[in-house]
Design a protein around this nucleic acid. Structure first.
Length: 556
RNA sequence: UGACCCAUGGUGUAACGGUAGCACUACAGAUUUUGGUUCUGUCUGUUAAGGUUCGAAUCCUUAUGGGUCAACCA
């Protein structure tokens, strides 16, 4: 049986082509190369899934390599966070994690080789002078006066740089490429700089550090990476990437660029994300409103949903802006399949069942997940005093409203049909209690009443329900592309109501057993996930995503 | 006045010279003890102009639009 068309993306086509041609003996090896200077976000999720899934699909391997060539910004704290996030996403890398810093000695030797070939030189110019001599994209650059230094002098100076003889910024090592190239990265790029700084792994062993362009390609090559996948903004680096491989005559890894993912209402600038944290607009890197992996995890987005999202978003080279609705759809799809249902009344109004004996109560069975029979069932307490959702009652309902109203009947899910007979209000006109009667013959699963009602409501037993907290999250920004305005800053679009803490909620008893990270569907409301602040006696849930609603209650 | 990349419904992504498909969204309808799920259906698309060809979203040319590149960041 045919599985239908395969719909390869352009990277898969390249890979299958390579496989057909027997390139690298059919070996596929990718890598995910984060810099350990911050937390991973939704954009990284795409890079992670592309690298790991491609290797998985073609029987290859994926390395995790920390691109730690700049000691100024990097820290081991981030290394652990990143590893944790990748594992949580469901991926495991080859062997142990690798580090560009493991190759410092080898990279240094590569630099020596380049100097010996007359392809690199030590430049004493200042950063400003170098920038000036590079000129602009539309104007050819000019050569540095130090460009013609002898190989011997370059060797001597570079060794002295390593030996710590010079101050930060006083000299750099540059590759001798082409100052007139239309590609700015080919205009004698700086490949080593002096930084007398402590490195999170190599400590004080080095005071010169390779630049990205001199570390990345060679690291790929050393690891035998066959397909080095990165985002489009590195396209201009590719000629340089290839140049070093060619001149050093090392394993030819191939760089392939894809468009990074943009999602409406989300930002992925590390700098701006950091500012949100620092300004206290969010509570931290793992605030459930953050587009970080840590934030999405705390929000309750399942890893499978994130993977599904990236797969559905696809891989191509054109700029894209994916609607957040696709992400939410993936989250719902996953959670609908897997999450246990519970009844939680978020804005309670009391219901008194006047014909139900206040002295007794009963335990009613309730299925845990209609999508999954193996999820079993639980029981819910029922008595003459209940709570229902304030939204589920209207004294003067519009047509099309099939919840509760005076004289109307609804089914209480897993329980009985009730009819509203009397509305009790306080001085301000606020409804305080609904007096109803129930139909004893209408019990769920044993309904002999023959009655049909249109509405089914969720409810909790007032006597046994637990009070707790729901943190309702909305979008952090009011604009779909907060970072896409030249005249405005992302901070001009902060949604002042992105967090609403609800302390009125009443939870059915079963949710008390939730553990941090457990997701539930609060029936007819949405998906919610137990926060780390959750406890048995005081439930605390984060709203993950609402259920789709095809009916909106119009407010008077 | 540069180089490089890109252009398919509202959004994302397929179609590899031969019926423009899938998903999300939106809107209908069916089912439903969740106004959820599921099912069915509908709406909306090849940036433009030339050229090659029996035939072009696909190949060529030009135009238009968008993006990227000038850190001792990655």
């Amino acid at each position: 049986m045919s599985e239908g068309k395969s719909h390869l993306n352009f990277i898969e086509e390249i890979i299958e082509d390579d496989l057909r041609n027997g390139k690298h003996g059919g070996r596929i090896h990718t890598r995910f190369p984060p810099e350990p200077n911050g937390y991973l976000h939704i954009g990284h999720v795409k890079a992670i899934t592309i690298n790991f899934e491609l290797a998985k699909k073609y029987g290859g391997k994926t390395n995790l390599r920390f691109d730690d060539t700049n000691p100024t910004t990097e820290d081991t704290e981030y290394v652990e966070g990143i590893k944790n996030d990748i594992r949580w996403l469901g991926y495991e890398w080859e062997e142990q994690a690798l580090y560009a810093s493991d190759y410092f000695e080898q990279l240094y030797n590569y630099a020596i080789q380049l100097i010996e070939k007359g392809l690199a030189y030590v430049d004493d110019s200042t950063a400003e002078q170098i920038a000036e001599m590079k000129k602009t994209p539309t104007e050819a650059g000019i050569e540095s006066p130090y460009r013609s230094r002898s190989i011997e002098e370059n060797l001597e100076l570079f060794k002295a740089m390593r030996a710590g003889k010079f101050e930060d910024g006083s000299r750099v090592l540059r590759a001798k490429v082409d100052m007139t190239s239309p590609n700015m990265h080919m205009r004698d790029p700086v490949i080593y700089r002096i930084k007398h700084e402590h490195h999170h792994r190599t400590g004080d062993a080095w005071c010169i550090y390779p630049m990205y362009d001199f570390a990345h390609g060679q690291s790929d090559s050393l690891e035998g990476i066959t397909h080095s996948l990165c985002s489009l903004e590195f396209t201009h680096h590719r000629p340089l990437y290839d140049w070093f491989i060619e001149k050093l005559e090392i394993f030819p890894s191939r760089q392939i660029e894809f468009a990074r993912m943009n999602v409406t209402y989300l930002i992925t600038s590390k700098r701006k994300l950091l500012k949100l944290v620092e300004e206290g607009i969010v509570t931290g890197w793992d605030d459930p409103r953050m587009p970080t992996i840590a934030g999405m995890r705390r929000r309750g987005y399942p890893p499978a949903a994130l993977r599904m999202f990236c797969e559905k978003a696809g891989v191509a080279k054109r700029d894209n802006l994916i609607e957040i609705e696709l992400l939410e759809s993936c989250v719902r799809e996953e959670l609908n399949r897997t999450s246990i249902r519970a009844m939680v009344v978020t804005d309670p109004v009391k219901v008194l069942i006047t014909n139900y004996d206040p002295a007794i109560g009963e335990e009613l069975p309730a299925e845990n997940n209609p999508e999954d029979p193996t999820a079993g069932e639980r029981t819910m307490s029922f008595s003459n005093e209940l709570y229902i959702e304030r939204d589920d009652f209207m004294e003067d309902p519009p047509k099309g409203y099939f919840r509760l109203f005076p004289g109307g009947s609804v089914r209480l899910k897993h329980a009985y049909i009730i009819t509203c007979n009397e509305v009790v209000k306080d001085e301000s006109g606020q409804v305080t209690e609904l007096r109803c009667t129930y139909i004893p013959e209408s019990k769920s699963g044993a309904d002999t009443s023959g009655l049909k009602v249109k509405g089914t409501l969720h409810w909790v037993d007032a006597k046994t329900a637990i009070e707790g907290e729901i943190r309702e999250y909305d979008k952090l920004f009011t604009d779909p592309t907060p970072a896409g305005h030249d005249d405005k800053d992302v901070f001009d679009f902060i949604n002042p109501a992105s967090l609403n803490i609800n302390r009125k909620a009443r939870f059915e008893r079963a949710v008390a057993a939730a553990k941090e990270g457990d997701s539930y569907q609060f029936m007819r409301k949405g998906y919610y996930t137990a926060d780390r602040d959750h406890s048995e006696n005081h439930p605390v849930f984060n709203s993950t995503v609402n259920l789709k609603e095809s009916f909106k209650v119009q407010k008077a």
